[in-house]
Simulated assay, not measured.
Amino acid sequence: MSTLRVHWTIAPVTAPRPLINCNRCGGVKPYRCGEKFRVNANGKRIDVWLIYRCVDCDNSWNFAILERRNRRDIEPALLTALESNDPAFVRRHAFDAAALRDRAGRIEESPDVTVRKELLDGEPGRAVALALELRLDGTTPLRLDRLLAGEFGLSRSRLQALDDRRRLTIEPDGAKALRKPVRDGLTVRVDLAEEADCSAILSAACR
């Protein structure tokens, strides 16, 4: 069976927003990432926060990144990245939903993502099966079945039918992964040999 191997990198578009009790607005409000760190040095100790602001009144909230760390224990390159508000480092922390939820308690997440596709091996016009490798650049609440259906141009019921006929396999989590948020490191295999729109699905998977 000729197989098309494709790698997808999935990146969330909008950073999760903590839901904070704003002392200016007088209620719980989403706070957006200000894309800047605040570095505070107290003697040899350093605190670092990523600054968030209320979407309505611009009140600030600090997301702790480092607390009471000795300057000597911080790599110079890391300290430089923090002090210069390095965009890649800001994104790394702003899209860490688990850490943000741990600090704030509740967060608001968007399912919007971008998908960068890389063809690793095979030709869409000749293959009859797909091996899809997923890499996640930040967490997302987007369910796997919604991602696959949208990118393949299929309905979710069609995906379920493929699974029922054992034409769809997901490793390591199995079919239960379809109804869960996309997870880094998943491999999706689809046997399309009996599907009339095989070529269209394979083309959509890599373009």
Rank of each mutant, 00 (worst) to 15 (best):
R126W: 11
T187M: 06
A175K: 10
C25F: 08
L78N: 13
R106C: 10
R179M: 07
I201L: 12
L50F: 02
D197V: 14
L119S: 00
R38S: 14
I65F: 06
K44L: 10
C198S: 13
R69H: 08
R189P: 09
R17W: 03
A11S: 14
R179Q: 08
A196K: 08
D102T: 12
D47V: 01
V28G: 03
W8K: 00
D197L: 11
G185A: 13
F89S: 07
R24W: 00
R71G: 11
R69G: 07
A94D: 03
R92G: 05
R71D: 12
L144H: 05
R53Y: 14
C22V: 11
R207G: 14
D73T: 15
D112H: 14
I65G: 06
R116E: 01
L186A: 12
G27S: 13
P16Y: 02
W49V: 09
E151R: 12
S110P: 01
I65M: 06
E83G: 06
L159D: 02
W8D: 00
R24C: 05
S2V: 12
C25M: 09
R207H: 15
Y31N: 04
G34R: 02
P141F: 01
G125K: 08
E151P: 07
A129T: 04
R165H: 09
L119G: 00
V90H: 00
A98R: 12
D47C: 01
P124K: 09
D121F: 07
R91Y: 08
R32M: 08
D58A: 11
L79T: 07
G105H: 06
I10D: 09
N23S: 12
S60W: 09
V128K: 14
P181K: 03
L119N: 00
R135D: 11
E118H: 13
R72D: 14
E151I: 10
L186D: 10
V113G: 01
P124F: 11
A11V: 10
R103Y: 08
V28F: 06
D163F: 03
A149N: 07
K36Q: 15
A127W: 00
C206H: 01
E123F: 07
A193K: 07
N70L: 15
A196G: 04
Y31A: 07
A131L: 15
P76I: 10
C206T: 02
A94E: 01
W8R: 00
G185N: 13
L162I: 08
L178A: 11
L120S: 14
E75W: 08
T3A: 07
S157Y: 05
A177L: 07
S110H: 05
D121H: 11
L159Q: 02
G174M: 05
P141T: 03
L147F: 08
P111I: 02
